[in-house]
Design a protein around this nucleic acid. Structure first.
Length: 673
DNA sequence: TAGTGTTAGATTTTT
DNA sequence: TCTAACACTA
């Protein structure tokens, strides 16, 4: 309890009724959750395995685990359940596999697999083909799933042809997933909810297991996640929910910030505690944040204050073009790095859209400023990693059609689209998964003998490998598998340069090491089965370890969304312009309010200094457009802002002069050492 | 199956 | 204006 303020202590101690902690930005909410878990174990004598803490990201779960590790010795925290919503769902499904009508070794499809599946189903569905885009259908189906609407119910409520077509596709999709013994991400929440809702015995079993539940970032829960919370906690409601409606920025993907309000409705004995003392930022940063968020009509008022220090007013840099903006940010950082000796990692540049990062990256590179770009999609989508995963998945689950489709001709085995098309037909006719269809075809005359031979060989090889896997560590088997299919050779064939092939091969080596770590990492110490391993890996994503390695001294580039939960001494908020922030597609009330909160999140990331930047004109889709400063700047009191560069239109020459001046400063500083 | 032409669309994203 | 995904052709 040491070092906690009165409200924080109250939140930690509160036990008998459900609790909602409205935790303002930087108010030490993770600390409260961690201390509360310690309190539950040490003072309330709850067994660790009865305590469940749920987060949204693996990163948050890991951090929480680490912080608990610093507070409690291993033996007193053994069995503690700290995980993401999805991992919690997966674990529940694993224990209830049969009850749910799944076979062991079921697959968890990622978004890309699910999209591919939808694409292929779309072609077959006469009602839907041509009428809808795969992405659109995927989004609609996901919405239904998150709202716990079954396919037939969706069909029943569909109001227009597009909706009806989506509903019909939803039915196909559900059927196909069942046939493949596969689940998508949404199912990891939805299936447990349905089970707990419809099966009183299962519900009781789980409510006994969950003696206390803590949920982080409650404003980000969607309808099914909230339902899962309710069902796990039962009517007694041993629950602490921590959240902040001011930081609700994910409504666009199904989050229901009103779930904060619903808690009062569903748990009448709910107690609410507000945390308003901020431990992160100087006063001027909080002033700006408070003033801005006061304009949000959809959220509850909250007033952040801090004892960190007064702080200065915030600069607003008005730049001519986006190039100019990028350059001024870069030179500014360079200046402050050398002049004030601030490490590069103390700076973060935030933006609304990823495309804005491009120019900034260029400028940083030009000035040799080290940076890391968080988020984006590059590493996640690495084909080589997805291929390897698909092999593992297919070995664990022979009916994983998505995995089979991905790798049956990778590397080339002469099994092209025509063959696959025919296989798909046969599979549908006889109600088989693709591998089984291939097996039955191989024994028949319906397909070109050469292709038939290829198929047979592939299936035999797969079977042999599967048997071997039972008696050998998965990673070893996987190494051998990659040799056998000469994946390295395949990469060399694919890539133009040997270097590129080399790099991708190295990615795979990284992946293998990572796999090995996960295989051993099981809490029990015993190694995981292939199916367990694959399931766990599908939820983790290789992204995790990569970002971890990047603790070096570098400027951070992030989207506003990706910045949530982080803090930096010096923050640059770029593109403070109408149509960018707020984004042009978010002019309607609710969405506009969310844009404002996004800006609020950006501001509250700053510990010591905050710099807004904007341009006068920007190229948009090839057209030059005059820019209006963001309305959000007007919602902050003028005396808090220090505008620089208004009315001064910089010439090319002057721009260059700025850069040269910066370089001269640096040379001087380096020379004087 | 690689190579070329055409067209839409261009926010935020975790699991 | 640029890109990426697709459909079509050789």
């Amino acid at each position: 309890m040491q070092g906690l303020n009165t409200e924080q202590q109250a939140a930690v101690r509160h036990y008998d009724t459900p609790l909602l902690v409205l935790a303002g930005a930087g108010s030490g909410k993770t600390r409260v959750i961690v201390e509360k878990i310690v309190h539950l174990i040490e003072d309330r004598d709850l067994p660790p395995r009865g305590i469940w803490a749920v987060t949204f990201t693996n990163k948050a779960a890991r951090e929480m685990g680490e912080r608990i590790g610093q507070r409690l010795p291993a033996e007193s925290r053994r069995g503690l359940n700290i995980s993401t919503f999805h991992t919690l769902g997966l674990n529940l499904i694993r224990r209830e596999t049969r009850t749910l009508g799944l076979r062991p070794g079921f697959t968890v499809l990622d978004a890309e697999d699910s999209l591919n599946l939808i694409k292929s189903l779309l072609q077959l569905n006469e009602q839907a083909a041509g009428l809808i885009e795969p992405k659109e259908a995927q989004g609609r189906i996901s919405q239904w799933k998150n709202d716990l609407v079954a396919p037939d119910a969706a069909a029943g409520t569909a109001e227009d042809p597009v909706d009806a077509a989506c509903a019909s596709l939803y039915a196909d999709y559900a059927r196909q997933l069942a046939a493949c013994n596969a689940l998508d991400f949404d199912d990891l929440i939805r299936r447990p909810v349905e089970l707990l809702r419809d099966d009183p015995e299962a519900r009781e079993r789980w409510q006994r297991r969950v003696r206390y539940l803590l949920v982080d970032e409650y404003q980000d829960t969607n309808a099914s996640q909230y339902e899962l919370v309710r069902l796990l906690v039962g009517p007694v409601g041993r629950l602490t929910a921590v959240g902040d409606d001011h930081q609700s920025i994910y409504a666009w993907r199904g989050a229901r910030p009103e779930n904060l309000q619903h808690l009062k409705r569903d748990f009448p004995r709910l107690t609410t505690i507000k945390l308003e003392q901020n431990y992160r930022s100087v006063a001027t940063v909080l002033d700006a944040a408070n003033q801005l968020i006061a304009h949000d009509p959809t959220t509850q008022p909250k007033n952040l204050w801090s004892a960190v220090g007064a702080g200065e007013s915030h600069r607003v840099l008005v730049c001519d073009t986006a190039e100019d903006e990028a350059e001024r940010i870069a030179t500014d950082i360079l200046h402050r790095h050398f002049k004030d000796g601030s490490a590069y990692r103390y700076f973060a540049i935030l933006f609304r859209g990823n495309h804005q990062a491009r120019l900034i990256e260029q400028q940083l590179r030009k000035l040799s400023i080290p940076y890391v770009l968080t988020g984006g999609q590059s590493f996640f989508e690495r084909a080589e990693v997805k291929d390897a995963m698909a092999y593992l998945r297919l070995l664990a689950n022979p009916s994983d059609d998505a995995a089979l489709l991905r790798i049956i001709n990778t590397p080339r085995r002469g099994i092209g689209p025509t063959t696959l098309e025919r296989l798909g037909q046969i599979a549908r006719e006889r109600d088989l998964h693709l591998a089984a269809a291939a097996r039955s075809v191989a024994a028949e005359q319906r397909i070109d003998p050469r292709v038939r031979h290829q198929l047979e060989q592939f299936l035999d090889w797969l079977e042999a490998t599967r048997e071997r896997m039972a008696s050998e560590p998965a990673v070893e088997a996987m190494r051998r598998l990659l040799e056998e299919i000469d994946y390295a050779g395949f990469l060399r064939e694919q890539e133009n340069t040997a270097r590129a092939a080399e790099r991708r091969w190295e990615n795979l080596q990284d992946w293998l090491e990572w796999t090995e770590r996960i295989a051993e990492d099981a809490e029990t110490g015993e190694s995981l089965s292939l199916a367990e391993l694959v399931q766990k890996m599908s939820l983790l994503g290789i992204l995790e370890q990569k970002t971890r390695d990047q603790n070096d001294d570098a400027v951070r580039l992030l989207t506003l969304h990706a910045a949530k939960g982080l803090e930096f001494p010096h923050v640059y908020l770029s593109g403070m312009e109408e149509d960018l922030l707020p984004h042009q597609d978010c002019q309607e009330d609710d969405r506009l309010a969310e844009e404002r909160r996004l800006c609020f999140v950006g501001i509250t990331r700053a510990q010591r200094s905050l710099t807004f930047t904007l341009t006068r004109r920007r190229r948009r889709y090839g057209q030059w457009r005059d820019i209006t400063p963001s309305r959000f700047l007007e919602e902050i009191e003028p005396q808090l802002l220090r505008w620089e560069g208004i009315g001064v239109k910089k010439s090319e020459e002057e721009t260059r002069a700025t850069a040269e001046e910066a370089m001269a400063t640096i040379r001087a500083m380096l020379g004087s050492r």
